[in-house]
Simulated assay, not measured.
Amino acid sequence: MIAQLFIKPTNKGKIQLFRYFFVGGAAFAVDFGLLWLLTEWGLSYLLSTAFSFVAGLTINYALSVRWVFRDHTLHSHIIEFVFFAAIGVVGLGMNEAIMWMATELAGLYYLGSKLISTAVVFFWNFTARKYLLFYGKK
Rank of each mutant, 00 (worst) to 15 (best):
M101A: 14
R19N: 08
V54N: 09
A102Y: 08
L115Y: 01
L63G: 07
I78K: 13
N11G: 13
L105I: 15
A119H: 02
Y61C: 09
A26S: 12
T118R: 01
K8Y: 11
E80S: 00
E80Q: 11
V89H: 07
T39P: 03
F51G: 07
F81T: 07
G91K: 00
T10N: 10
V30K: 03
R129H: 12
V121R: 05
A106V: 13
G93F: 03
I7L: 13
V90H: 05
R70H: 14
A128K: 05
G91S: 06
I59L: 13
L133Y: 02
A97Y: 03
W41R: 11
T127R: 06
G91L: 03
V90Y: 01
R66A: 11
L34A: 00
F84P: 06
W124F: 04
L46A: 06
L37R: 01
F84K: 08
G56L: 03
G93H: 06
E104L: 11
R66S: 14
L37C: 10
T49Y: 08
T118P: 07
T103P: 03
V65I: 15
D31S: 01
A27S: 15
F32A: 01
T118C: 01
K14H: 13
Y110W: 09
M1P: 11
E40R: 11
Y110G: 04
H72C: 08
F83Q: 13
N60I: 11
A3H: 13
T49K: 09
S64Y: 00
R129T: 08
E96I: 15
M94K: 09
F21T: 14
Y109G: 11
A85T: 11
Y109V: 11
L92P: 04
F51R: 08
I79P: 06
W67H: 08
G91R: 05
N95P: 04
F28G: 00
Q4Y: 12
F21M: 15
M99T: 04
A128L: 05
E80W: 02
V90D: 05
V89P: 00
E96K: 12
E104Y: 12
G13V: 15
L63N: 04
L37G: 06
L63F: 13
L63V: 09
